[in-house]
């Protein structure tokens, strides 16, 4: 009985993951801005986030954008995970690829805007 229940749970989870992931599409990036944010400011952040997206594609995507169920998925990172400049020494690859010589502090900020306002992936 217990074993059957577990099996059902696993199957349900598996199916829901399948459904959710097939819904995720990264073709067009959607941004979510707080309602309280004035329209012109939203537009400004949209512009900055788009710059951040391009910089992400150039500097980060080759490692971080992964194929999930046939679709390319840009992961979600929080502002905290981006961790300002400590990201530069987060691991050996970053030491080289996210060095100050390659990605400036201002560019890191733009990438952080991108992750802050990018619509989160469905779990």
């Amino acid at each position: 009985m217990y074993f059957r229940n577990i099996c059902i749970v696993i199957v349900v989870v598996f199916i829901s993951v399948l459904i959710v992931s097939s819904c995720v599409s990264q073709k067009k990036i959607e941004y979510v801005f707080p309602d309280a944010m004035a329209k012109p400011i939203q537009e400004e952040y949209y512009r900055l986030s788009e710059k951040g997206r391009v910089l992400y594609e150039i500097n980060c995507a080759s490692c971080h954008t992964k194929k999930v169920k046939g679709k390319m998925v840009i992961p979600d990172f929080t502002e905290e995970q981006m961790g300002a400049y400590s990201i530069r020494i987060a691991n050996e690859i970053h030491e080289d690829k996210v060095s100050e010589a390659r990605v400036s502090a201002e560019e890191l900020n733009l990438i952080t805007y991108f992750f802050t306002y990018k619509k989160k992936n469905k779990q």
């Binding site: 400049y85 400590s86 530069r88 020494i89 691991n91 050996e92 030491e95």
Partner: peptide, 11 residues
């Protein structure tokens, strides 16, 4: 030795 840093000292 592929020494890798985790410290801001080496920034």
């Amino acid at each position: 030795y592929n020494v890798s840093s985790k410290s801001m000292v080496d920034y």
